[in-house]
Nucleic acid binder design. Structure first.
Lengths: 183, 183
DNA sequence: CGCACCATGTAATGCGTTACATGATTTT
DNA sequence: AAAATCATGTAACGCATTACATGGTGCG
């Protein structure tokens, strides 16, 4: 899957692995993230599969840059993936729910402390989406007025994050009350 | 992480890998799932780490069963994990958002079709949580009246699923309108 | 007769993280 | 003087999926 994220960005413009890491951190990281090492490894794999090619740019006083460019095969691969709908629900993994599922084994107070820590974190995250995340998109839209359609999609993903965190916070609030009263 | 799910269940009672798969499918699968092969492999690892031990039960006319029992070390490991709070947000991965992020490259109709397919799926999932999932918990609670506290936690995880799917459906509804009007 | 269920596992492969390794330049 | 940034990668390990392999019982 990381492959498609990389191809998606390289389809906008050629970039190095280092730059791909930065752009992912500031845009997709809330729903798709990767470590630098995985990005380098995946780019290498994509190159050997003919989806991208790379050229080394020699710099002086700085490390050389390996700039990756998407190929026709890479574009075709990306477009094919975009075109085929997902016809199943994506399986979720939520560590916190797993712990909570077995959480009756914990002291009531220990459980409440954990839930309150999480509530604090998710509340902060709502603010992140409402401020920083919103601003990143606004700045990008201003810089690239030719990418209006893309900006609408980016805003949709931001809105998902905001709604997710609001739902999560609401659920934690209700669960805390439930545990206080019934456990 | 699967390790803790297995230890959590084995802490209730000794079981085979086959039974663990079944119980996970009917309880935690919405927030933690595993393939049968991974369960067998993880049990083996847990045994070599001394967290569980196994005994083969010979059956006639049926394959032998390898019954796993949690050890004192396994209980300690589980309890330590339960006791330490998660102090960070869990990173999420959402394939659909990744595709949507690059979705401006698609035809408007193709994009709308994909969003509508997803909306249908998530709507069905709301119903699953409101009916089948609710019933499974009710049946289990009736069968194990000594596990009242556990049942409250299970209901909390079910409620998370329901709220998540409602949020997701709401977001898709809004996003579909957005794409219809602005793309 | 065919299918689902019971019950176990191995092997290959892929995806992802952590740790290691290097070193100049720029900013605080 | 220290820390962050720029820039690349490899190696080991762990987690997860897919495919392969076996074979009897019970039900419709």
């Amino acid at each position: 899957m990381l492959k498609f994220a990389l191809l998606g960005f390289l389809n906008y413009s050629a970039m190095t692995g280092y730059e791909l890491k930065q752009i992912m951190d500031s845009s997709t990281s809330n729903f798709w993230h990767a470590k630098q090492s995985q990005i380098y490894a995946t780019l290498k794999k994509c190159e050997s599969d003919g989806l991208v090619y790379s050229e080394v740019e020699v710099q002086d006083g700085r490390p050389n840059r390996r700039v990756y460019t998407i190929t026709a095969a890479g574009k075709a691969d990306l477009e094919a993936w975009l075109a085929v709908p997902f016809v199943e629900l994506e399986a979720q993994k939520q560590k916190l729910l797993l712990k909570l599922f077995f959480g009756a084994a914990l002291e009531k107070d220990a459980l409440l402390t954990q839930l309150r820590i999480q509530k604090e974190l998710h509340q902060q995250q709502i603010q992140y989406y409402k401020t920083q995340s919103k601003e990143i998109i606004a700045r990008f839209s201003a810089a690239k007025p030719d990418m209006e359609k893309e900006a609408i999609m980016w805003e949709a993903t931001r809105r998902f994050g905001e709604m997710f965190e609001e739902m999560y916070t609401q659920w934690l609030t209700e669960t805390i009350v439930q545990v206080e009263e019934e456990l």
